[in-house]
Amino acid sequence: MESVIHTEKITKLFGDIEAVVDVDLDVLPGEIFGYLGPNGAGKSTTIRMLLDHIRPTRGAGTVFGLDIRRDSVEIRRNIGYLPGEFALYDHMKGRAMLQYFANLRGGVDWQYVDELTTRLDVDLDRRYSQLSRGNKQKVGLLQALMHRPKLVILDEPTSGLDPLIQHEFYEILDEVKDEGRTVFFSSHVLPEVQRVSDRVGIIRKGRLVAVEDVDTLIDRAALHRFEIEFAYEVSSAEFEHLSGASDLVVDGRTVTVSIAGSPDALIKAAARHEIMRIVTHEASLDDIFLTFYSEDGEVSDAA
């Protein structure tokens, strides 16, 4: 199957800053691909290169099999894009703005626009300058979705949306997928990516460190950090070599350890002593990065 998005060693340097380095991406038709990484990882930079807003320092890419540099106008005909940070025209009303963008694309199905407007709960009869941040974001979403593009590229789309609207938005993405269209979206929030994507690319410090099925990622994300306080000091030897354990720290009466998968072995080992307190934390994106994806981009299979 031909990739909708394909990049080969695409790289963007800003002076000394390695924003994106040697990224090889393949996004397949009809999938929702999550592009996950902490702030400053290079997500927006990658996306802007796909749109031809900035040009790769080296490497190349195609969208729909067309060259991202040479055929950009043709590519953009079939893309809907929501930038991570954007503004629209303060003095214009939402509806006029959508009308304008629709015209630039040679027309849209207004029934679908109306449907989206209702579902996202946007007031299109107010000037853009009068809208709240969340509503501005929704107008941005509308212009990215309204023409039913073959490929939707969304840069941190849910920032500023309230949970109810976020839910509706995820539904809309699922429908886009059901229609056989493709979604590429970036996020720095793990649960969101888990919720909507089929596959996930993880970018860190400009490098694509892993591409996983979302199920694999969910397994990995089942990483918990346990903090167990005992009534007295215990020896660290008892907690080494537990299955799925990593990053063991024994500090006086407190044992802290990360467990991937079932905590059964840990609980049984701990049960031999008198326990005062157990605290567990869900792994943060950073913990997962640190545990599974080492600095040099190789996947270290701790699970």
């Binding site: 749109l51 953009r76 930038p83 954007f86 503004a87 963008f101 630039l104």
Partner: peptide, 14 residues
């Protein structure tokens, strides 16, 4: 500078 150009130029306009 304001950021609307990034939206405008994501449309099929050279």
């Amino acid at each position: 500078r304001r950021g609307s150009l990034e939206v405008l130029l994501s449309h099929p306009v050279r």
